[in-house]
Amino acid sequence: MLEANGIEKNFGGLKAVDNVSIKVKEGTIMGLIGPNGAGKTTFFNLITGFLSTDSGEIKFKGKDITNLEPHLISRLGMVRTFQQTRIFPEMTVLENLIVAPQDNVGEGFFDPIFYRKALKDDQKEKISVAVAILKDMGLYDQKDEYAKNLPYGEQKRLELMRAVMTSPDILLLDEPTAGVSQDYTDNMKSYIKKLKNERGITFFIIEHKMSFLMDLAEYLYVIDHGKLIASGTPKEIQNNTKVINAYLGTEG
């Protein structure tokens, strides 16, 4: 589904991403791990078009998307979240969700004039979808609260829900549990599983915490200093000496 070959990115003299190739299969949960500063987020930015690559090729659903504009990549069905959560703070929780779908009627300049009826019906439908998701995630009571007033863990969940509202084929999550409590982490884990099973969404997840991905991901890539140093099932990765040296060793 998603394929990246020989991706490179330099910042001045620093090789942030050095010849990294990955493949994400449809219907799986895959992980990208590595120590801080390994180049994980940079790699995400490259795949999703927020940074341009120096060399290499990215294919999504068989289409070459290398250096395409981010909103066009998103429209193809690959949607991401951010490590530093990016919600719309001065908009309500419900508004945060309603604004996300890519087939929203009424976002063009002439739509409010010519599609009044269609716009209303569409909004109603989108609101009911959003309400269902909010109830599912237990955020329904806060739906009219400004997003900035939510606790950090719930902002992270809101960001994920907002991404889900776009009906993506693949979700790229950048540290979905960074800085949140164990409760939220467990909650997030079960929600991701549910999304995969019920909606068939493919996941590619960056995590710093290995434990989060150990029983969630089917396959892991490990990068360190911009280079791919290992890949395999979580079990294989746990026993890989290169990985242990680069990463787990520091935790042990």
Partner: peptide, 26 residues
């Protein structure tokens, strides 16, 4: 009519966080 429409909401996402809005395909 405009600011209450989805178009108006889209304007606000630019104010709130352009990058996030782009990530949603706007």
């Amino acid at each position: 009519m405009y600011v209450k429409s989805p178009f108006g909401r889209l304007l606000k996402t630019i104010r709130e966080d352009e990058t996030a809005a782009q990530s949603l395909g706007k």
